[in-house]
Structure formats: C-alpha cells, structure tokens
C-alpha cells in the first residue's frame, strides 16, 4: 500500500503541508517496503485553477492508494474518490508523525471535502 503525503520537504522529518493541490511535492511512502519516493508538484503552485484536480491525477498515476494531507477541496476529492483513493485529513506536524497516526489506525477516511476550493 502506497501513501501520498503532502510536504515542502524531502524526507520523513519534513513538515506535512496543510494544502493538497498546491503542496510543493508529494512523498509517496510504501508501507510494505518502508521506502519512499518524491513526486514533484511545482507545476501546480502557481496554477490559477485546477491545481487540486491535477495533483489528484498525478498521485493516482503514481499508484497511491491513500492521501494524507491537511485539507482536501471538492474537486480534488471528486477525482480521488472516483479513482478509489482514500483521503485522510491530518493535523500532524511532520510526515513521520502522520504515518504513525495512520499506522496506529488513528486517522479516519474523509467522507467529503473538508474545505472549499481555493481555501
């Protein structure tokens, strides 16, 4: 199972970015092998619109089964849901903390977008 986490950093100690569509990059963590890869999202940082949709498409194509981020807007949510990717909203400070919460079963999959677009 692969988890996409939003971040501005490049390792497990990096902060968890509260934004999904406009996060600098995604850290795609493989729960089974305990390895990760980084997926760039820079093209979306300055997109006028559609950033969430594009970001969702990027991580679905990268093979993510779940997303852990601060918030998720309605368009990104629709794309992720259609692709069968679970969404976890998380307030953890770092990637490592977010992964711990997820592994301990302390995060619940979101049933709907938790913010408006362009929040």
């Amino acid at each position: 199972m692969k988890i996409a986490l939003t971040t501005s950093g490049e390792n497990l100690e990096a902060p968890l970015d509260r934004r999904f569509g406009r996060a600098a990059r995604f850290l795609l963590y493989d729960l089974k092998n305990r390895t990760f890869e980084l997926i760039d999202n820079a093209q979306n940082l300055n997109a006028a619109q559609g950033a969430g949709i594009q970001a969702a498409e990027t991580i679905v194509r990268a093979g993510a089964d779940a997303v852990v981020s601060g918030h998720c807007g309605p368009k990104a949510f629709r794309v992720l849901q259609a692709a069968g990717v679970a969404i976890y909203n998380c307030e953890a400070a770092t990637i490592a903390e977010a992964l711990e919460l997820l592994k301990d079963g302390k995060l619940q999959p979101a049933a709907a977008a938790d913010v408006e677009g362009h929040w």
Binding site: Q49, G50, I53, E57, V60, R61, V79, A82, A83
Partner: peptide
C-alpha cells in the same frame, strides 16, 4: 484547464 479528467475510469 483540467475541466475533464480521465484516470482509469
């Protein structure tokens, strides 16, 4: 403009 997105489905 990402007005139409097709992934898998």
């Amino acid at each position: 403009y990402k007005a139409i997105v097709a992934i898998k489905t």
